[in-house]
Design a protein around this nucleic acid. Sequence first.
DNA 1: TCCGAAGTAGACAGACCGGTCTACATTAAA
DNA 2: TTTAATGTAGACCGGTCTGTCTACTTCGGA
Lengths: 203, 203
Amino acid sequence: MERSVYHVMMDTPSNSAVMDQTKPPARERILRTAHTLFYREGIRSTGVDRIIAEAGVTKVTFYRHFPSKNDLILAFLDYRHRIWISWFQDALRKYGNNLLAIAPVLQEWFANSAFRGCAFINALGEMGSSMPEVAQRTMQHKAELREVIDGLLPENCDREGLAGAVAMAIDGAVVRAAWGEPAEAIHGFKQLIEGMRCLKAQT
Amino acid sequence: MERSVYHVMMDTPSNSAVMDQTKPPARERILRTAHTLFYREGIRSTGVDRIIAEAGVTKVTFYRHFPSKNDLILAFLDYRHRIWISWFQDALRKYGNNLLAIAPVLQEWFANSAFRGCAFINALGEMGSSMPEVAQRTMQHKAELREVIDGLLPENCDREGLAGAVAMAIDGAVVRAAWGEPAEAIHGFKQLIEGMRCLKAQT
DNA sequence: TCCGAAGTAGACAGACCGGTCTACATTAAA
DNA sequence: TTTAATGTAGACCGGTCTGTCTACTTCGGA
């Protein structure tokens, strides 16, 4: 438990550290830099010049790979989805891969210094009305989250309905942690999960 | 049930409609316009010039009332808090003022064409790292939400803990509705509430 | 070696951004 | 009537934003 899976999977490697070895292709560098900055500081707050400077590319290279900023935003969400779901699944396995594993996984995530809530919920709030694709990507991300949760549940229950409710409890906990109450978020999440288990025990 | 309380309380009156009667003071017009635009389109996406034009004031007047855009953002959140909590309480009373009243109230909110999720969660995701006051305002708003929920609960339970979990279920439902699944959000919310009631029945 | 893909440096454009300022007009209260 | 508060019209500022473009270099595969 000393070495968090989170750090291995989701931290974007510092570009300067990697440059001492094999430099990743420009597109990868842009994407990683955008991920770091968009998640940390917001999407519109981050200008393309900043990404370009920190990724160490030029404008022509940037626009060759991403014809517009909106393209980059969607690529950022896709990239985020991949690394987050992958991390989430690995972390769940570490804690037993059942419903009760979720709380410690969330706890680990909230404890990470880079934690700033759910990138999809954040993007939705910021860009949801000007880019409908963001809502669509969010819906897909959350659908896959529910599938992962589904896989934690035993066969003898309404897995689909339960997974939906659990996913909502996760989101409630994530936003609560994001505004500054991570411990309360975990506590409330555990209560909601106990409630679900209670309900399941009745059926 | 034909005339939703929501429309009376939370829709910002169109400025042009009000102008045929008594024109509200400049500050009020600015605040209402900012509320409409920030909530609908995002905070950074909305420039002060747009607010100024739609509020029908000049720059000097704008900056006299709000010395910076950040001041306006915080005023927007305070205004939102007041009208939302007020609306929420009125709507709960309409449906019986108990735990089961929450679902129809949320349903009504989600059905509103102006619905775009929770303004605080949206602002947090967008501005949370550059303006710590936003996180603070969110925390306060959510604390008062929990107090309202607390008041719906019977005396014979862990009201504080339960209110916290219910508030989190609300947030989970709100973000789900915001990405485009309002019916599923209500369904999941009801499940979470049933789980809480089940848990309470055991203690 | 040649060629195309990919990359570099850096300048440019128009629009938008938040904020400052002058000069003048209106309104309400003393 | 006078004065202060409040409001108007509009110009201006420096900076940032997204995107376009020229000229040149590097790299890898045929």
